[in-house]
Design a protein around this nucleic acid. Structure first.
Lengths: 140, 140
DNA sequence: CTACATCCTCTAGCGACTAGAGGTGCAAGA
DNA sequence: TCTTGCACCTCTAGTCGCTAGAGGATGTAG
């Protein structure tokens, strides 16, 4: 069984070394075996787990959600209803966030277009910020 | 001149009481006058400043950006180029974020649709998380 | 044997708040 | 007048998901 150092695990997984140690400290990754000189040595299974975590983080899942997803993965006979629920909740969050950012974008575009590039007292950016009433109100 | 308490300022501005104190502590809001009993008393100008800050935060500007925007507002003879630049930068951030969230949304939809509602070992949610290769790759 | 990279642990910091402890001020009702 | 009870005060510590840095040990190539 060939094991690798934390540095190699980092390179292969794309997760930074201190982050790997952090994941271990919060219990997302199991404590690996150590070399004689007390250095962590990782096995292929650890690397897969790390890839799972990384991918889930990229998709914006919170650490607690990932913890649940990992325990599900560890016990494949369970129903996948919770995994499904977690993913659905995340999807709803993302959709909501997109809606709100799209409204924001419109607002910012108006501000930027309206800037006459003159002095502050004619600046639409500052003006709109000072007076919420000038917004198109799609958000907040 | 009628002044108001921090609680009223909070209700009128929609900024929570501890957050108002926090803004004061980091120098976004000036230290207000105090009553005999050492309680903060706010004037209309403070309320306007608070509304400005709140609106800017809702639009996702960072506190440091807001600090700059406020100093611009305080001195209306300056050029509004920096305000313009800050707003433009924020716009680009928002556009980027929307793009990446839209890709994410597609990914999550595939995951959720593919869930057969059976057991974990057939669950597409877990499977995709474990294997990034199954992604459509538009993001990360 | 000597560099030098990589590893180790530990603590503190980031941004933008939020929560809680422990105490004081103030207005209204009995 | 007293008391009830809410709103206010300060201060410290916690949130999330890392990241940075100090200070020292280990491992490897020349």
């Amino acid at each position: 069984m060939k094991t690798i150092t934390i540095g190699e695990a980092s390179r292969k997984s794309g997760v930074k070394v201190p982050t790997i140690r952090y994941y271990e400290s919060i219990g997302l990754l199991p404590e690996p075996n150590r070399s004689e000189g007390n250095q962590r040595s990782y096995e292929p299974a650890d690397l897969r787990r790390l890839a799972f975590i990384r991918h889930a983080r990229e998709l914006g899942f919170e650490v607690e959600a990932i913890r649940t997803l990992l325990t599900l993965q560890d016990d494949p006979h369970q129903s996948c209803a919770s995994a499904d629920a977690i993913a659905k909740a995340r999807l709803i969050e993302v959709e909501q966030r997109i809606r709100s950012l799209t409204a924001l974008k419109a607002e910012l575009e108006l501000m930027v277009e309206g800037c006459g590039h003159g002095r502050v007292d004619q600046c639409r950016v500052i003006e709109v910020l000072a007076d919420h009433g000038q917004c198109s109100h799609a958000h907040h």
